[in-house]
């Protein structure tokens, strides 16, 4: 299993063979291939968008506000329509990808790493830590995220970094509790017990035996959390305690388009659609990954792959 993991997770390695296997496995799952391409586009937007389109995306035109979509007469940038200040929505979505991805990826990764590490400790340890850490999760869970946001952003600037901080803290308990629950179960399984009897070290048991078992669940939650974090950031903006203009994120665009939902639907529809598509793609890709990583499941892809090549 760990072999397979290395093979898939490091396709950038010079060994062309491994990369080809990975790509072949991906090609076998058509929806996952589309998803991967879409995500690649989003990442490219996030990296190069601000450089290329910053100027165009912030140029306002009050008299041409809320321009309807699919009107090529005004140039390709306005194909998705104009926003409430007459800025081209397409350009804004591209530019906003950068902040959005930074916030979503930052918050999800941070909460996932911290949460599952704490969860591992809590689940594996039979001592005090096993008792105390879940209570920490209780406290965070009952601390309203809105209050946390108000506190952090009242004292610090509403910057990307601080939004990540707020969102990461509030999402820690999910990972912590899920990991702990899984570990509680897995550590009682025969093979872990066997490893223990054979004198395997604790890190070895955790990383070689327990981690691979709980990773799929954590990844499922993390990909869904991506959407959650983007939308949570949107509601923070809406309540006035998130990212504020002139900064822009998809969530902020969705929130700002809300009053126009019945009169100019495209203002919040397009950024919302991008959020949905991103989540969908991440999920398709993660579903593919769990199959590709699981030796007992991989035949599904290999079979399909052979048929298609």
């Amino acid at each position: 299993m760990t072999m397979a993991e290395q093979r898939i997770l490091s396709p950038a390695k010079p060994e062309a063979g491994r990369l080809r296997t990975a790509l072949k496995l991906l090609w076998a799952d058509k929806p996952a291939t589309v998803a991967a391409v879409f995500l690649l586009v989003i990442v490219l937007c996030a990296v190069f968008g601000p450089m290329l389109l910053e100027q165009v995306s912030s140029r306002q035109n009050l008299r041409g506000r809320n321009a309807p979509p699919f009107d090529l007469a005004k140039g390709w940038l306005l194909i998705l329509g104009g926003d409430q200040l007459g800025r081209p929505l397409l350009a804004r979505i591209v530019v906003a990808a950068s902040n959005t991805m930074a916030i979503a990826a930052g918050a999800v990764l941070a909460s996932m790493l911290i949460g599952s590490a704490l969860g591992l400790c809590a689940g594996y340890s039979r001592g005090r830590a096993g008792d105390l850490i879940p209570r920490l999760a209780d406290v965070i869970m009952s601390f309203p995220s809105l209050l946390l946001a108000v506190i952090v952003l009242y004292m610090l600037e509403p910057s990307v970094g601080n939004i990540i901080l707020v969102l990461a803290i509030t999402r820690i308990p999910v990972y912590l509790r899920t990991t702990r629950a899984e570990v509680l179960e897995v550590r009682e399984r025969m093979f872990v017990q066997a490893a223990l009897v054979m004198g395997a070290s604790t890190p070895r048991i955790i990383f070689r035996h327990i981690m691979p078992m709980i990773l799929p669940t954590i990844l499922t939650i993390a990909t869904l959390d991506f959407a959650f974090v983007m939308l949570a950031e949107s509601s923070l903006s809406f309540l006035g305690i998130g990212i504020q203009p002139p900064e822009v994120t998809w969530g902020l665009m969705v929130a700002q388009g809300r009053p126009y939902l019945t009169t100019a639907w495209w203002l919040s529809f397009w950024p919302g659609l991008v959020i949905i598509l991103t989540t969908l793609s991440l999920n398709l890709l993660s579903n593919w990954m769990r199959i590709a990583l699981d030796p007992t499941q991989r035949w599904r892809l290999e079979m399909g792959g052979r048929k298609n090549v």
Partner: peptide
């Protein structure tokens, strides 16, 4: 039945549900 029709449909709609802004759905 992983990868079956039911699986794909259920996954597709549940993911859209999980990632659509709730006020959209509410107002619509």
């Amino acid at each position: 039945r992983v990868g079956g029709l039911f699986d794909r449909v259920a996954t597709f709609f549940s993911l859209i549900g999980a990632s659509a802004p709730d006020f959209w759905i509410a107002i619509v």
